[in-house]
Amino acid sequence: MTWVGRSVRGLVLLAFAVFFLVPLWALLDLSTKQVVTGGRTGAHWKALVENEQMRSAIITSLELAVLTVVLMLVLLLPTMIWVRLRVPRANRLVEFLCLLPLTVPPLVIVVGINGVYSWVNYFLGGSPLTLTFVYVVLVLPFAYRALDASLSAIDVTTLAEAARSLGAGWFTVIARVVAPNMLSGVLSAAFIGVALVLGEYTFSSLMHFDTLPVTIVLLGKSDTGASMAAALATMLLTALLLVALSLLDRRRSERN
């Protein structure tokens, strides 16, 4: 690469670094600033774990993230493998259904889903964890894409037929042969699910559930510093998940 090429690459990288890091630096600055004296303080970060409302919101959002990812994978993974193996003609239909949530404005979904939720609340109570059902729908388009790419990268039919000829039932084919070979897709879908749930505000706010993003906004009205700390913590958590995902994927590639 010539020095011109290296310089251009350096400039582009610098521009992206500034674009991403300046807001993060601003969050760190504001979340550690002592407003009155102008010095530094860890009080806002301490409040994250000590503030009962915030702690509860973090736990709720983490629980929602886990439940959403689990339910999404339980629903989507076997369905996609089954459709690919047994009813390939339905592939387009499943794709259409999974991508549908992208085309409907969130407000429309909220209005439509409120009626359904009166029943959900009736049977399951008013727990914020019931948001899992909405989040599973919201994460479907992204998870579908991740899983579809990973499914297309392997010869599913031959693997399934080989396993069947060795005595495997359909559950074993899906759980012990095909799914383990889609690990990178599963991890990507899971990560997307976690990132979406941790950042989702519209639905939880309109449906009056106190998740992390809702609480950050609420807290921002009374304690800006703590709100900034929570926002930064959420982003760091998401970034950590991304790093963990790449490490897992790299280990898998090295093994292969």
Binding site: D155, E161, A162, S165, L166, G167, A168, N181
Partner: peptide, 19 residues
């Protein structure tokens, strides 16, 4: 069904389980 037939099969495509 195939999984109850007790037959061994080798395929044209490579069919070993990659994992």
């Amino acid at each position: 069904p195939a999984n109850k037939r007790d037959m061994g099969m080798v395929f044209q495509a490579y069919s070993l389980f990659p994992h």
